Amino acid sequence: MADHQETPALRSYAALGDSFTEGLDDPGPGGAFAGWADRLAGLLAGQCPPGEFRYANLAVRGRLLDQIVAEQVPEIRRAGPDLVSFCAGGNDILRPGSDPDEVAERFEAAVLELRESAGTVLICTGFDTRALPVLRHLRGRIATYNGHLRAIADRNGCAVADLWSLRAMHDRRAWSDDRLHLSPEAHQRVALLAARALGVPVAEEPDAPWPAQHTPTPGELRRENVQWARSHLLPWVGRRLRGESSGDHVEAKRPHLLPL
């Protein structure tokens, strides 16, 4: 898990993306979500004199790649931050019949645009979903997209947080009850990984083993699976059938670069 070359002091950071970057299921101050991007911003702010670091998080749950490009990228052109994280395309890959090659072409076009306005662009690969119900069937498509993302990063000088390599994400404690979004501890691990990719020193190991815990019995697992299907899978399928998104009527939680 090689770190990106050390970067100069980063005094402004804008995060773009969907629910992953918005920080769902990681409760923060005031009832809002925190998430890995907010946690990374805190780590970066610690490298700057007090009051000099600015942060924006424009990510909104449910957004597809083209929506992120249309709604969020223009703010980068206006603000010109030192760092932008661009994690997008995951919701596109989840859609039946999606083509990772075609999604990657549109992703790189956006990266080229971001490189003109931001000092450093950080991207994230997708997680290895072999341990997740439903999403495990998309593992090959995600791996193909990841291959494109690594090549895009190489061609355009982007930093990469390689989420596929995080073995800690194979533990059920890395995921929230919906089995789609991260738990608070997992958000912290992603923030540490992203910081390392940027050359920011961190004291903790992103892929440290989880503490030992009780192993659920087959009966307990069956009950959990039934509860998960009722509470999360069926509503998710229903939204897809109705053409709805969890991000409908949701606005960015931190749309402008402001002191952290």
Results as ranks from 00 to 15, higher is better:
A118D: 10
G119V: 12
V121L: 01
L122Q: 02
T125Q: 01
F127H: 08
R130N: 11
A131D: 12
A131C: 10
A131V: 11
L132Y: 02
V134M: 11
V134K: 04
L135A: 12
R136I: 00
R136A: 09
R139V: 13
I142A: 13
A143Q: 11
A143R: 15
T144S: 14
H148R: 15
R150A: 09
D154Y: 00
N156G: 05
G157V: 04
A161W: 00
D162L: 06
L163N: 07
A168G: 12
A168V: 15
M169D: 02
M169I: 09
M169W: 08
H170M: 04
D171G: 09
R173L: 05
A174Y: 00
W175I: 05
W175D: 02
S176I: 00
D177W: 08
D178N: 05
R179K: 15
H181L: 08
L182E: 01
P184S: 05
A186K: 03
A191N: 14
A191D: 15
A191F: 10
A191Y: 04
L193Y: 03
A194C: 15
A194W: 00
R196Q: 15
A197N: 10
G199Q: 11
G199I: 11
P201I: 07
V202P: 12
E204N: 07
E205Q: 13
P206G: 09
A208G: 08
A208P: 10
A208Y: 06
W210F: 10
W210K: 11
A212V: 11
Q213E: 13
T215F: 00
